[in-house]
Nucleic acid binder design. Sequence first.
DNA 1: GTGGTCTAGACCACT
DNA 2: GTGGTCTAGACCACG
Lengths: 121, 121, 121, 121
Amino acid sequence: MDYKFDNDKPIYKQLVDQLKLEIITGKYKPNDKLPSVREFAIELKVNPNTVQRALLELEDSKLIETRRTTGKFVTDNKKIIDNTKTEIINNIMKDFFNNIENLNISNEEIIKYIKQNRKEK
Amino acid sequence: MDYKFDNDKPIYKQLVDQLKLEIITGKYKPNDKLPSVREFAIELKVNPNTVQRALLELEDSKLIETRRTTGKFVTDNKKIIDNTKTEIINNIMKDFFNNIENLNISNEEIIKYIKQNRKEK
Amino acid sequence: MDYKFDNDKPIYKQLVDQLKLEIITGKYKPNDKLPSVREFAIELKVNPNTVQRALLELEDSKLIETRRTTGKFVTDNKKIIDNTKTEIINNIMKDFFNNIENLNISNEEIIKYIKQNRKEK
Amino acid sequence: MDYKFDNDKPIYKQLVDQLKLEIITGKYKPNDKLPSVREFAIELKVNPNTVQRALLELEDSKLIETRRTTGKFVTDNKKIIDNTKTEIINNIMKDFFNNIENLNISNEEIIKYIKQNRKEK
DNA sequence: GTGGTCTAGACCACT
DNA sequence: GTGGTCTAGACCACG
């Protein structure tokens, strides 16, 4: 795992996004134990508080839960994970639609652009 | 014209984006005179410094130019406007591709989503 | 018996409260023998140290006593049990009064709320 | 205003509760500007980060909003404030009911206790 | 060893 | 001057 942070967004927010992604794509599975705050901090070379803040946000969104003194775990509620995934996709699409809204571009043109420029894996 | 600003982005940057859009979509045409900084400020209910900063950035990108004592005008260089448009579109698409990059979504699915959810005007 | 612990309070404290309740409500009667630390630990799926700590606190409050080599027993001093009960009730009421203290709610309203929402058994 | 913090709860949480109360009881009114983070910190003799954390939580619950560079303001959405008030009351009552649930106390007894012990203002 | 909280102090962008 | 972020480092309760 190799995270690089850019300067446009707060690190903790990038971390939230990154971890969300890893949970909804199954890299971290339900009930998996996350690395401890300290381990994360060392691995990512950031301050433990920064990690803590990111994990707090994930916990608020119910994607992870803290079991006292034993660590933090990915939720076992798959519905929450699925909902999160749908929500993320919808947000991405909504942002995208907003961005091109005023540019008078047809769906045809967008689709053409995608086919020409996006390589699938 | 009724702008609302959100708190996530600097106002001046939102202003830059808005004005860029109005130039490349032809709402402001080449050689049009822009409202004065003061007028903008009153209309948008923002600090004149904020307007000033936005216009400065537009001037840097050559989309507008200051003609001494008479005001600020949209460039008459259509190529610059066209390039800006292309650049904006490319950026939007790039951001979009980045956002969905790790979600394992095929082009097919994206196209389907667009057809189902984006209404053209 | 099926205990679930929440993460806001220390487990041992939740255990103390639970056991206190079972003593003052007569589920465990005076002179009853308690399960051993080990049995408790298995039944509740917690660390034996946690059980130990809870029982220690109960012993401090005189509600249970250790008889060497034979185990731990609920006190036979009914006055202690009664006092504990009164104390618990007073604490609950005191907390409750504190909580609503600044909300400008009259006794009338509280009583009405109770009548409407609390079903007795 | 004179806050004292106890040691049972995190300071930031006590601050959240305190401010919530002051908002729902109208001590801070809709659209009021809150003292700045730094002012709060000095007044309460805590670290600005602690204040920041509390205000963040209030913002999450929509009770306050941040207007960039100008400060933090009580929401102008009275519905949110009302809902918060109802929610707080319900939580207090729910906790109370839970606490006395196993004690076999009748509504009559509770009401009598309240009448005897709670002095209204 | 685990997370939670707090402090002190710094730097930054924005207006 | 305003809030936002981050670091370094400390202490605590819990199990």
